[in-house]
Write a protein that binds this DNA or RNA. Sequence first.
DNA 1: GTGAGGTGTCTAATTTTTAGACGTTCTGCA
DNA 2: TGCAGAACGTCTAAAAATTAGACACCTCAC
Lengths: 174, 174
Amino acid sequence: MNKYGTILIVDDNASILTAMRYLLDGTFEQVLTTTQPDDILKLMAQQPIDIVLLDMNFTLGVNNGNEGLFWLRAIRKQHPQTPVVLLTAYADVNLAVKGLKNGAADFITKPWDNDELVHKLKDVLDMQSEIVSLDEMEREHIRRTIDHCHGNLTQAAELLGITRQTLYNKMKRL
Amino acid sequence: MNKYGTILIVDDNASILTAMRYLLDGTFEQVLTTTQPDDILKLMAQQPIDIVLLDMNFTLGVNNGNEGLFWLRAIRKQHPQTPVVLLTAYADVNLAVKGLKNGAADFITKPWDNDELVHKLKDVLDMQSEIVSLDEMEREHIRRTIDHCHGNLTQAAELLGITRQTLYNKMKRL
DNA sequence: GTGAGGTGTCTAATTTTTAGACGTTCTGCA
DNA sequence: TGCAGAACGTCTAAAAATTAGACACCTCAC
């Protein structure tokens, strides 16, 4: 079975980290953990992290998840390509929704089901690893742009920063 | 004040449609409404729709929102670029979350606040209208791909479907 | 130490993009 | 209805980018 790279787990409860490490050791090549959210960006700068599992309920400071959202945004800002999965209390769906709208890839409620957790993490990584060719990306973006301009090719070309003729070329090539 | 194009509102309650039409007439150039979800794709095929406001609680058939999710998916499949905003019952956050994960742009709970509704719709449209140049999109995708390959340029070039030299060129041009 | 794989650089041929021009068609508006 | 501005479709020649292929160098695992 292929392993899934490096995961970083952030939770202020050390025993949860131990449980997680034990659970995920077989799935990931490397499992990093920290109780200090301040360490997140430092760790991510030191080495490539493939996914972050972030607890939203820090007992220190305000307990409304704002701190979790703060760190989520900080991670997203520095590493927009790294998926972040949230851990929230079972009741706190609202917070999870806020998290999703701030770019989290998914969320998991505590207490969690081990199999489901692993499955969700794998899903997220499988999803985001679909890197497409530059041509394919270009095609898709051109299609979106033309659609956005309701078919006005002149305007679409201008938005795309290319000449109208080049847009014709690219469309002909399909 | 610039108007925001065409909105399509889908709700099986005709009086809600009337209220919506009255509310949104000043904000949108054209307000289309229907009580028949079957009409959605037909209408969208006939003319460009800029945003869809979709009720999730159809009284006909099952009332667990599955029908709403079904239509959301149908819209997303045919028109992945058109934002869909969901209308759900106040209690039904779970359904809204499912909707967001199925590609909805946002959701609004019934009963709704008029100002908030208009504001959310505008937000969604302002957001998605950020079409970037082809170069910018290319840069971003290249950055993501290289990151995904942890810096292995040969592998990144192959994934992108271009030669290594071309990747060098594009990176030099920044 | 050696072989596989990645890097950085080069060349010459090919392809793409560009600016600019032209007449035609569409569209909004008076 | 007719007009003007905008978009369309097509063309040219010059400039720029991409390509395949080659070469020497590095470094890491075995």
